[in-house]
């Protein structure tokens, strides 16, 4: 999904994902049609179904603050991550033909945050 420049680094854009998607950016989306995104207090979970695909046919990479997925060497998906994602903590699992990608929120975004009182 290509995000307009003025919207980057302002709001937690992944929670505006649905709204932005509906707002006529459909034509330039480079995410899978059946992508599901869940948001909880600690991060986001992305899910895509890839039935019949072998684990080694999927290549997932975080590069230039973006998530890049290559499927069977030809199909490519791309998702910019904005500034709320802990890119170093991104993880993924593939089982039963379902790819699940975990994007943790940067510490400052986590709801329960203990504050030391000096």
């Amino acid at each position: 999904m290509i995000l307009a420049q003025h919207l980057r680094n302002t709001s937690p854009w992944l929670s505006d994902f649905g709204r932005l998607f509906d707002a006529a950016l459909r034509g330039v989306v480079t995410t899978p049609a059946d992508l599901r995104v869940h948001e909880d207090d600690d991060g986001w979970t992305l899910e895509v179904d890839f039935p019949g695909v072998a684990r080694d046919e999927l290549a997932l990479e975080v590069k230039d603050n973006g998530l890049h997925l290559r499927v069977k060497d030809d199909t490519r998906y791309h998702l910019p991550l904005g500034d709320k994602v802990d890119t170093a903590g991104v993880s993924a699992r593939f089982e039963l033909g379902v790819l699940k990608i975990r994007l943790p929120k940067l510490d400052a975004q986590v709801a329960s945050h203990h504050i030391e009182i000096q």
């Binding site: 059946d34 599901r36 995104v37 869940h38 909880d40 979970t45």
Partner: peptide, 14 residues
Amino acid sequence: DQAPAGRLIHGEPA
């Protein structure tokens, strides 16, 4: 039922 934690913010539920 392996739906991830949290609320669905994009896409149709499986």
